[in-house]
């Protein structure tokens, strides 16, 4: 149970120690590249973040079928159960989601599911896919890495109130 608690406890339990330090255990979950992108990050690193999307992450080059781990001809119920089992693993609330070290994100999984579970949207997507269009488009920030929040490194106990 302690393990599952870390998940959400980590989200709210940054303690303010002396001045500007955060207790290390709480940063486990945010030990992604986002950690450096706190509010005090120098200008240069903000630009670096914007440059980064040019180097497409593994996730971005996958098709929506790859995201959900299903075949191109998967049935609706296969898609649904694939989504559910991925949700159990990758949803931030899921127990043990902090142990995932791959680049998958629940928002991507959900977006893939939304498209593939709607027959019209899926047909349209299939068409695009077979025509060899760009697989996934990203905007200024969606491409900016794992989308667990741009202030992911900052979470203080008092965030919930003041």
């Amino acid at each position: 149970m302690a393990g599952t608690l870390t998940n959400s406890a980590g989200a709210t339990s940054f303690r303010f120690l002396n001045g500007d330090r955060f207790s290390p255990p709480s940063s486990i979950r945010s030990a992604s590249n986002l950690y450096i992108r706190g509010r005090n990050a120098p200008k240069a690193s903000l630009h670096a973040v914007i440059d980064e999307p040019l180097v497409e992450s593994k996730m971005k080059s996958m098709s929506l079928y790859d995201v959900l781990n299903v075949e191109r001809n998967a049935t609706a119920s296969e898609i649904k159960s694939a989504y559910r089992s991925l949700a159990k693993r990758y949803h931030p609330d899921a127990s043990g989601s902090e142990q995932n070290d791959d680049d998958r994100d629940f928002i991507d999984i959900h977006d893939a599911y939304v498209t593939l579970s709607d027959p019209t949207a899926r047909a349209l997507y299939d068409l695009k896919l077979s025509a060899g269009f760009e697989l996934r488009s990203g905007g200024l920030y969606t491409a900016a890495g794992k989308s667990s929040g741009f202030y992911a490194g900052r979470r203080w106990e008092t965030d919930q109130c003041w």
Binding site: S8, A11, T12, H47, I50, D51, P92, D93, G139, L140, Y141, T142, S147, S148, G149, F150, Y151, A152, R155, D159
Partner: peptide, 25 residues
């Protein structure tokens, strides 16, 4: 850009891009 994270925190981010300037920065 709006982002609601797993603990229901809302963040709003904004940036300016000038099209035609040859850069998306």
């Amino acid at each position: 850009c709006m982002d609601i994270d797993d603990s229901n925190m809302l963040g709003v981010m904004s940036g300016i891009v000038m099209p035609g300037s040859g850069t998306r920065h």
